[in-house]
Design a protein around this nucleic acid. Structure first.
Length: 542
RNA sequence: GGCCUCCUGGUCAAUCGGUUAAGACGCCGCCCUUUCACGGCGGAAUGAGGGGUUCGACUCCCCUGGAGGCUACCA
């Protein structure tokens, strides 16, 4: 019995040979400097900010000079894979306008020549490579019981290295070929493990685009290539897929740095050229106790990308914020190109920060305010309306039936050289302008001002007419104020405040309180225009 | 236990051996504005600690500390 016999006994239904496979995946035709990147999510039912961050790095790298960005679904973990979860990923990408060059459609059609782009549809390929490795004596079948959960591993670790034994050889690696074949034929389940060629003293070097050169202990473990259900874990699928699919830069989370030596030995065993890695940092949060912690599903709504849709953040704001985290050069670029679209920013791999950033909502909001400030009134209206159609149907209807009014509302302090910066997501607009939708029931009137307030509102209501210009409106406020004994001239008011009931600012405050219930609102004249004469009269109790 | 990564203001961060250690957000103050804002100007606030190397260290080296990751038939 030979290794060839053993190899034949394994996965007898796999007829594809490695040579045939390699023919099907010819090297890509790339021009100088073009890169192939990919986004390879596990369909767990959600796309979170960390995934998205990584996807965006990958996507941006491709963008610089052509090349290919593809999507590969890594559904090899039965436990974690959620049915229909790929939909969520597609949906998020679609909403953000990210289009992979190659992917598999939801109804199973592969777009691109290097598919299938879903890993569970590639099992024959993985198994064919496994057979080859077994034939070459670089891998072997393992009949051991599966290690269950992490508890076992932790237990092992206590004793594992006491003798300074750096190797972790699997007992099955030296099983006689005859016995292995017999057990396979008998129907025993088996995994395939790599037969590491290392003894634990070797070192490896690899280059990471973000961290630079990294040197580490080489792998000396007979790790699993194919699980006993015939499905490969991450490492084997990664080595094969990213080679066959011609990925030139593998962007993945920095949690993979530690297992890269394993991947390197695997590439070598398979006879593949090693790839270039780009291990991106993770995103953090400041916890309630002031400590850093990983951003989490449970405590941080902004973890899930759906959050940004639900709140109604413009896509551009999210992208600009992420760009801000990815590259420190972006902000500088934004400053010198205030009106350019973010996609014109030249993304350089060398600028990617190596440090895990802390997510800062306040900064996101600031960036988003700037995005809104550049929009026209109709753009804001349309975005708001589209958002409402999905998340607030009643509001959507209201916006439709009074379009002119709401475009006017969206235009307050907008479409001018220095627009107001207040709105940062569509979801906040309704609350922000709640007094537009209904007469306020409470006011922020200060204690002690009640009489003056009532007096002013009454006087203002007396000859009220909706002004047709801001100047006219302001003159109107001043006139009423003056007649009641308010200061017309701010200087004299400041010199002798006790001589007056207040200044024009105070008068405006009263008017604002009457109409909006607040001491703080956008331009009152414009708000009155939006409310319209009859509604203003109503609020002045005319 | 072993291996690896990271460490400049509250946050994002520039510097790639020589600077009064940029800039942005946030915070505070002032100015502009006789509405709310926008805006303008200014301020407080940073090299984890300790050793080296060097004329000179945030930058290079070592140690300590802190944070995180990997060490699964998870990714």
């Amino acid at each position: 019995m030979t290794l060839k016999d053993l190899s034949n006994a394994i996965y007898p239904n796999v007829n594809l040979t490695v040579d045939e496979i390699l023919k099907k995946y010819p090297p890509r035709n790339l021009k100088n400097g073009q890169v192939v990147t990919r986004y390879a999510p596990s369909p767990t039912g959600m796309m979170h900010i960390g995934n998205f961050f990584q996807m965006f790095i990958s996507y941006s790298l491709r963008k610089t000079n052509g090349g290919v960005f593809f999507l590969r679904v890594e559904d090899t973990d039965e436990q974690r894979t959620v049915k229909e979860a790929a939909q969520v990923i597609y949906q998020v990408l679609d909403k953000f306008g990210i289009k992979p060059d190659e992917y598999q459609t939801l109804d199973g059609k592969d777009i691109g020549n290097y598919g299938p782009y879903v890993q569970t549809q590639r099992l024959q390929i993985y198994q064919a490579f496994a057979k080859k490795l077994v034939a070459e004596g670089k891998a072997f079948p393992c009949f051991c019981k599966k290690t269950e959960g992490k508890a076992d591993v932790l237990e092992q670790r206590k004793t594992k290295f006491v003798e300074n034994d750096e190797r972790e050889y699997d007992p099955c690696r030296d099983m006689p070929i005859d016995e292995a074949i017999k057990r396979i034929k008998a129907g025993e389940k088996y995994a395939i493990r790599l037969k590491t060629k290392n003894i634990g003293t070797e070192r490896v070097k690899f280059y990471d685009l973000i961290k630079g050169e990294i040197e580490a202990k080489a792998n000396a473990k007979d790790f699993v290539l194919i699980k006993n259900d015939g499905v490969p874990p991450y490492a084997f699928a990664h080595a094969i897929d990213d080679t066959l699919m011609g990925t030139t830069i593998v962007v993945r989370g920095e949690e993979y740095i530690g297992s890269t030596p394993m991947h390197i030995e695997l590439f070598e065993a398979l006879g593949f050229k090693p790839t270039i890695y780009c291990h991106n940092p993770l995103i953090w949060k400041i916890g309630e106790n002031g400590n850093r912690r990983k951003i989490s599903k449970r405590y941080d709504p902004e973890f899930n990308m759906q959050f940004y849709f639900q709140q109604g953040y413009p896509n551009d704001a999210v992208f600009e914020y992420l760009l801000n985290l990815i590259s420190s050069k972006f902000e500088k670029w934004r400053f010198s190109n205030p009106n350019a679209h973010w996609s014109q920013f030249k993304f350089d791999i060398n600028d990617i920060t190596a440090v895990s950033p802390v997510f800062d909502m306040v900064k996101l909001n600031d960036i988003s305010k700037n995005v809104f400030a550049k929009m026209s009134a109709t753009e804001v209206y349309d975005g708001w309306h589209n958002w409402a159609k999905e998340y607030d149907l009643a509001l959507a209807k209201e916006l439709e039936s009074n379009k002119e009014k709401y475009v006017m509302l969206c235009n307050i302090d907008r479409e001018k050289p220095k627009p107001r910066k207040d709105i940062y997501c569509y979801g906040m607009i309704k609350d922000y302008f709640d007094y537009i939708f209904a007469r306020p029931t409470t006011t922020e009137l200060e204690n002690g001002d009640e009489e003056k307030y009532a007096e002013f509102v009454k006087a203002y209501a007396k000859d009220f007419k909706l002004a047709s210009s801001k100047e006219e409106w302001f003159e109107g406020v001043k006139k009423v104020a003056m007649e009641l004994g308010y200061a017309v001239d701010n200087k004299s008011y400041k010199e002798n405040p006790t001589l007056y009931k207040g200044n024009t600012a105070k008068a405006c405050e009263f008017l604002r309180l009457a109409l909006t219930g607040r001491k703080n609102s956008p331009d009152l004249y414009e708000i009155m225009q939006v409310l319209g004469e009859s509604e203003v009269k109503h609020r002045l109790d005319i």
